[in-house]
Amino acid sequence: MSLLIKTNPMQQQQSPFNTNESNKRVVLQTRALNLWYGENHALKNINLPMTENEVTAIIGPSGCGKSTYIKTLNRMVEVVPNVKISGEIQYRDRNIFDKNYLVEELRTRVGMVFQKPNPFPKSIFENVAYGPKIHGIRNKKILKEIVEKSLRGAAIWDEVKDRLNENAYGLSGGQQQRLCIARCLAIEPDVILMDEPTSALDPKSTLKVEELIQNLKENYSIVIVTHNMQQAARISDKTAFFLNGEVVEYDDTNIIFSTPNDKRTEDYITGRFG
């Protein structure tokens, strides 16, 4: 059974937010997205662009729909029972809800990193090689290359290169999270979704991951959900503020954190509620 409700194209609205971009392409374009958990209308008419080689931060108080939204971007949300979705999300000009679109294919292109580091109970090497192996790569030399490249990409190679065969559980929390990012990079995604990737990390590991995110955006487009507003201000190019399932404001991060347009955004970022 399809989870999709057909949307009337007339209902699709242009984003009311400032989305004009000079050269950068939109990787993920959300249009008139609505999502219900049973009767609960969790996302209401979301219209958002995610731009190539940029970090887009999603902020908002608990229960505002930001995690639901990010999980919708690679259709992870569909594992929740009684989910209904209408509207569309175009990933590089293709609607991800299209019935011909294989979810595995989408998730290869749109990878995800979670709040708590979740390495497999395997060696460091196997954690990273797991994805490529599933995609049929068996050549050891190629796998080694992929593992090194991914670990380097996640800025953890120097810390683990001499212990690749050790169990990943032996790594610190911050290292485990960067390993998970390496695992995500190993399948060469285009977009990386991060759901509060540093909320379980200490300040130093947090800064390392933030630094990494800044470097990763040269090659990837990143969407990050964060409760840490200073983090959103530090690392993102664009920020979307969610409240009660709606996008209240979307703009350049510099504008959101200096002169937001909406009083609710101002109140949230200055810590007056939430």
């Binding site: 507003m229 200073q230 201000a233 954190f257 200096s258 002169t259 937001p260 101002e266 970022i269 200055t270």
Partner: peptide
């Protein structure tokens, strides 16, 4: 760590 109007 003020932002927006607080920082101003």
């Amino acid at each position: 760590q003020p932002v927006a109007s607080d920082l101003r």
